[in-house]
């Protein structure tokens, strides 16, 4: 079973994402910010990470840069999932190594479509 790590400081978003991802056949793990997510990655490498941008301890962008700098850090697909819809910010996310980008609010069709584009569905 494919594993998806959902990194978001909103419990509600994590719950909605979990429901959608489990319906799509993923095993889901959760982290409340980038720092917690990095800790989680010391033990398991997920197939895909659904990543919020604005979080308290470590932003999604900082997390992504740190992830991609790590050995085997290129492996997980990363899909940003944020309220940011400025194309400059989306460019920034893609340049930092994001594979796809979801603008909130999202639904199951959008998540499935983006997972497929990122090559994990």
């Amino acid at each position: 079973m494919k594993v998806c790590l959902v990194v978001d400081d909103s419990r509600v978003i994590r719950k909605v994402a979990r429901r959608i991802l489990e319906d799509l056949g993923f095993e889901v793990a959760e982290a409340g910010d980038g720092a917690e997510a990095l800790g989680w990655l010391r033990t398991v490498t997920p197939h895909v990470i659904l990543l919020d941008w604005n979080m308290p301890a470590m932003s999604g962008l900082e997390f992504l840069r740190e992830l991609r700098a790590q050995p085997r850090g290129e492996a997980p697909r990363v899909i940003f999932c944020s309220v940011e819809n400025d194309l400059e910010r989306i460019r920034e996310a893609l340049s930092a190594g994001a594979d796809e980008y979801i603008m909130k609010p999202f639904d199951g069709d959008i998540v499935a479509s983006k997972l497929a584009m990122a090559g994990v569905l």
Binding site: L87, I90, R91, M103, K114
Partner: peptide, 25 residues
């Protein structure tokens, strides 16, 4: 709209072919 550009369009194509508009892209 934001919803329409997320149905089938990759983020790479979105930033390549679209600009931000007052409402949507």
């Amino acid at each position: 709209s934001q919803f329409e550009v997320q149905r089938g369009l990759s983020a790479h194509r979105l930033v390549r072919h679209f600009e931000n508009a007052e409402e949507g892209f």
